[in-house]
Design a protein around this nucleic acid. Structure first.
Lengths: 239, 239
DNA sequence: AATCATCAATAGTCATACTTTTGCAAGTAT
DNA sequence: ATACTTGCAAAAGTATGACTATTGATGATT
């Protein structure tokens, strides 16, 4: 019975903890861009050996968050050079004071990505995927009516994840997790109406149907409406 | 006079060369998913010390290409777990037999991302950015008319990069490089007409104008036309 | 004032020893 | 025969120290 860890991040390895500590510090701004560290400093700060510190720095370097130069040390890089699509960077930003900015960026991205994914899904979705989406819509409807935001969220996430996967484009598919986090962030930070809009559910159903029927243009249009509805709902809540 | 290296990848550090060798091997399929390596094996294969091998493995692991487990070794992961937005992964794939697939994925992504970026740019572009785009359009027109594909490409890339940057969304902006590679790949692999379509240039101009005027919907529409024109031109060439 | 040589700080690399986890196999009991 | 321990050994993880190479800065020389 060997299950992989549920959260790959919940690592017990030293390396991983230094990595996330450092990464979090950079993302949060606790280590401002331009700050210069030394490997030795990191060793003593985190009480680890050079090997561990070096590996963490290497990984952060590969994410564009640090740069290591001889005779200088380890420099913290500005946000403009981060790999902003790296799932870890996204998670760290969502967990930091940067959360609102990150959610905004992601929402704008979604507006572009999801309609295209819907159109592609209409051409490529497997019967299995169509079924998953139908189930998700049904669940959204039931839990939306009863106002169970938790289960509603799960169904919503499943819907979008499946749709992105059904696009048959691995890059779009890989945004499934991220979109799920956006949806989660929205409900967990009071940016959702207490009772989901039935209109939204209907639109999800429309997307699912269009995908089933192979109607790319229709799927794309309906998905665009979903996102417009979502931003409208959010700005309405704010007022 | 200290210039940073032109290509950060043209690294002289041992670490980097092992990294790119291994990464290339995985992307190309020379190391199939499921293959199990050992650190010691890597050390002798690349004639480097464990530190260097470990750091390379760590980075690849952070890109979802390898997984390291005690008592097992280093396992090559399937494409589905790669960080497909990592610039290095994209470059490696573009340099491998995977090139066509990668270009296709990216084109589909563009279709989603660029129209949204255009709409946002209409709301946020600085005068400076508007000017850059105007210059790019002018250059495209001149070099398009004379059939100089090289300079035309450069102007085209500058246009799209500027537009994505002008979206004011760091995630969209970070796709600038990638889009530029798509454009480059298109001309470098004979997927461009010998003489760029004047229609295409006109559409770029339309985007630039709409952005200047703050016409988000117009910019989005025109940008969508650009991409449709491009795919139409490509499929026409193929026939 | 500009150029050059020297120095020292710091990351990069290597080798080695030790620790920890964990798959596997042999053995044992049910 | 099956299931359950037990122990072993393989492999990564960590720590340390020594040595190399690069490079910014300092100070001397022109």
């Amino acid at each position: 019975m060997t299950l992989p860890p549920a959260h790959p991040e919940a690592t017990v390895e030293l390396h991983g903890s230094v990595l996330s500590a450092l990464g979090t510090a950079v993302v949060s701004g606790a280590l401002a861009a331009g700050t210069v560290l030394t490997l030795e400093g990191l060793c003593s700060e985190y009480a680890v050996s050079r090997s561990v510190a070096r590996e963490a720095v290497r990984v952060l370097e590969s994410m564009g968050m640090l740069a290591s130069r001889r005779r200088v040390g380890v420099t913290v890089l500005p946000r403009s050079s981060w790999n902003v699509f790296d799932p870890r960077v996204i998670r760290w930003r969502l967990d930091s004071t940067d959360r609102v900015d990150q959610l905004l960026s992601l929402s704008e991205l979604r507006r572009g990505v999801e309609p295209v994914a819907a159109a592609l899904a209409a051409l490529r979705a497997t019967p299995e995927q169509c079924r998953s989406m139908a189930v998700a819509v049904s669940d959204m409807e039931v839990h939306g009516r009863s106002g169970d935001l938790g289960p509603y969220l799960l169904a919503d996430q499943a819907f979008h994840r499946t749709l992105l996967e059904a696009s048959g484009n691995e890059m779009l598919a890989s945004l499934g997790e991220v979109v799920a986090e956006v949806l989660g962030g929205r409900t967990h930070h009071g940016m959702m109406p207490n009772r989901p809009n039935p209109e939204a559910v209907a639109l999800h159903d429309e997307v699912a149907r269009a995908v089933r029927l192979g109607d790319a243009a229709g799927a794309e249009r309906a998905m665009r409406s979903i996102i417009d509805e979502a931003s409208a709902a959010m700005s309405e809540l704010r007022s």
